[in-house]
Nucleic acid binder design. Structure first.
Lengths: 206, 206
DNA sequence: CTTGACTTGTGACACGGTGTCACATATAGT
DNA sequence: ACTATATGTGACACCGTGTCACAAGTCAAG
């Protein structure tokens, strides 16, 4: 987490830092990124950076978390919009993430995040879906989902549904970006797989 | 890919290098690993390393690919053993990977690989399952799978089944390792989700 | 206003890792 | 023995990191 000094910064200066960091993390992945470049872009001395952040990761995960919050809001509002239809809501999130990742500016940041996704990064996104934490946002989602629609008997089972959807959704996002699929090609693949998920991978014994 | 000089090396010396590299990549992730440590352990001079490998990544992916080959053989033999039952076969792979990752030596390498899994690493594992490549191994798998069992009409659709299973399996592996689940707890979660996948996430309209 | 306590800014520096290169050494064919 | 080709070697230049001692601000109490 950023240090207190970071939050004490004047709005304007903080934004300059954020922009500089985002620019560097858009250029390359977290591991290739260099603090030196952020300093150069932001025009601040080396020591200052370490007043605000623990290290490179700290800055990166700050940015990522801000992003994840927005995505979470997006999911909540989609669930409302589609009256609890989890599949429609998540499919919209998928599309908007892909489209989002075509905007200049945002684009390369999300690309780099997806291409270097690991469990720590994924957790930053899906932390609001984990069951154990005393997590208000967890309830946000679960209350909104129309559970009637789902093949689950309990709240606990719904957790597994979320896990599966998370896994497949991220997998598709990453696949789309790393193979430069067009938005429509990506959607087609994703929706095919969602359909399979809904109906089941196994042939119903008839 | 390692350079020709690496393959020309005497068996014994090559093994020393491999062991040293594996040791370093077991200590920390690819990005934290240092070539210097490998040199020290293997007792070779700096210049030599660059005779054999392009860089750190090159050595890492060489090791990983060797590992992936073994896993692939394992999947093939499981498919034969279970007479084409994809779910049983993949579930066995899951278990053996987890158990494998309890052995001393292998253990930390696999742990680090899983904890730092990204699309490039995942592709190293699942390259044999991709549909487009002119890939004998692709056929290996697909011919062995009992498609009758599956809710697919074509070979093309089976690709999506594999994609989903890959996504969910890796997701569970990573989750198990990062949360230090016991093998049995991990199996329980994984099999619950496999069951859900088989039957479908959606309640059959009755 | 000034003194002192605390917070924030600064950049030179030591450290450690990387990849290269000129040179040394080995190997094999003639 | 001679030459060509492959391999071994480690000093070196380069770059990024995180720290630290010191400078500069801020602010409240006397």
């Amino acid at each position: 987490m950023p240090k207190a000094t970071f939050y004490n910064l004047k709005e304007e200066k903080r934004q300059i830092l954020i922009d500089a960091a985002k620019q560097e993390f858009s250029r390359v992945s977290l591991y290739e990124a260099s603090i030196s470049n952020i300093l150069k872009t932001a025009g601040i001395p080396r020591g200052s950076f370490y007043q605000y952040f623990e290290d490179k990761e700290d800055a990166f995960f700050y940015l990522l978390n801000e992003h994840a919050k927005e995505r979470h809001e997006c999911l909540v509002s989609n669930l409302k919009k589609f009256e609890g239809d989890l599949f429609k809501a998540i499919s919209e999130i998928f599309r908007s993430t892909l489209e989002h990742s075509e905007d200049k500016g945002q684009r390369d940041f999300i690309r780099n995040v997806l291409l270097n996704m690991n469990y720590k990064i994924e957790n930053t996104f899906s932390q609001y879906l984990s069951e154990d934490v005393a997590n208000e946002r967890y309830d946000d989602i679960y209350d909104l989902v129309n559970a009637e629609q789902l093949n689950v008997a309990s709240r606990k089972e719904m957790f597994h549904v979320m896990q599966i959807l998370t896994a497949v959704t991220f997998h598709n996002l990453i696949h789309s970006v790393s193979n430069n699929l067009s938005v429509s090609a990506a959607m087609k693949k994703y929706e095919t797989e969602l359909k399979l998920l809904q109906l089941g991978l196994m042939r119903s014994s008839s």
